[in-house]
Computed example of a mutant assay.
Amino acid sequence: MRRTASPLSLVLLGTGVFLLVLAPLLTWYVSPRAKSNPIDIDTTTVFEGTGSYFDTKDLKTVTGAPLTITRQVRGDVADSLKSGRAVWDVSTSVDHEGTLPAADTTDSLQWTLERWVTDRRTNEPVHCCKEQPVFDGEAYLKFPFDVEKRSYRWWDGTLGSTVVLRFDGTKKIHGYEGYRFTGSVPPTRTGTRMVPGRMVGLPKRGQVLAEEWYANHGIELVVDKRSGRIVNAAIGPRKTVRAPGSKKDSMVLLDSERMEFTEATQRAQVRQAGADSDKLRLVGETLPMGGGAAGLVLAATGLVFVVRGRRSERTAP
């Protein structure tokens, strides 16, 4: 006797099988590719705090002054597409009230322009594409995807080396919970600069090749655990100058106990982290689990209808 199945049973069975195949595909193929550093990034983050800085006009250290750090990150799309990496140009300026708004970055207390190149999936540094400076570590402007509860090596550009940041629980920023990482930098010699001798306690010498020292009172980063985006950052930079061979600071160039993301920056970072996290959760968890469950139900239902249809054909007079 000819065996037939209803169109509805075949549609249910076919749809169920499709969803069952799609679920692992989303988990093992689509989701890993969704975890990729963007190449068209264009963000600005602002730190604010109070502290001391050296006034080059009056040749003295000003204390208790408002300080601002502005960092702009722009992706070089052309170089990123050509290399297959995430190529980001990073402009960082440190200002006081007298240099804001800065018409020219050279008016700032400090200004740097860097090019950071990373593997788009692993976030590891890649040394190509006119990278400057050559850097190392695991975390930089962001952490890797799927952040773990462990210590990370974070690159400190002023130090020119990595700093170990320890996992220190969780913290909410505007209601959004992230992983908290903390660390500090002890006083470390980072270079030299030529200064008048009187500025380092050597008035009888015209110019002195003084030592530059750097420390960080405390680093606190709150990170979105899925995307690795930093939703809040606080740092305590201290830059000083010492006479050659001295163990004491002679002049303070910059010192702040704590400079932190502004409220506006925090909200913008939280908003973007939430959007990124939702996309990753949708592709990596919601769709595969929901699709797999729906596929199982539809395939089972369709199979039951097919079997029943065949039995009805057999028993029909």
Rank of each mutant, 00 (worst) to 15 (best):
D58N: 10
K60P: 00
V62I: 13
P66Y: 01
P66C: 02
L67H: 01
T68C: 00
I69N: 05
R71P: 00
V73G: 00
V73C: 04
R74H: 15
R74K: 15
G75H: 10
S80R: 03
S80W: 02
L81I: 05
K82Q: 11
G84C: 08
A86C: 06
D89M: 02
V90P: 01
V94D: 02
H96R: 10
T99E: 11
L100Q: 04
P101M: 04
P101V: 09
A103T: 08
Q110N: 10
T112K: 06
T112H: 08
T112C: 02
E114L: 09
R115V: 09
T118I: 15
D119A: 14
R121E: 13
T122D: 12
P125D: 02
P125E: 01
H127W: 05
H127G: 09
C129I: 11
Q132W: 15
P133K: 09
V134C: 04
V134S: 14
V134L: 14
G137K: 08
A139P: 11
A139T: 15
L141N: 12
K142E: 07
K142D: 07
P144F: 03
D146W: 00
D146G: 05
E148V: 06
E148A: 13
K149T: 15
R150P: 07
Y152P: 01
W155S: 04
L159G: 09
L159P: 03
S161I: 03
V163Q: 09
L165Q: 04
T170M: 06
K172A: 15
H174M: 06
G175R: 10
Y176A: 06
Y176I: 11
G178N: 06
Y179E: 12
R180G: 02
R180F: 01
F181E: 02
T182H: 02
T182N: 01
G183P: 08
S184A: 14
S184I: 00
P186I: 05
P186Q: 10
P187I: 13
T190Y: 10
T190N: 08
G191E: 13
T192N: 11
V195A: 04
G197P: 02
V200D: 05
G201K: 06
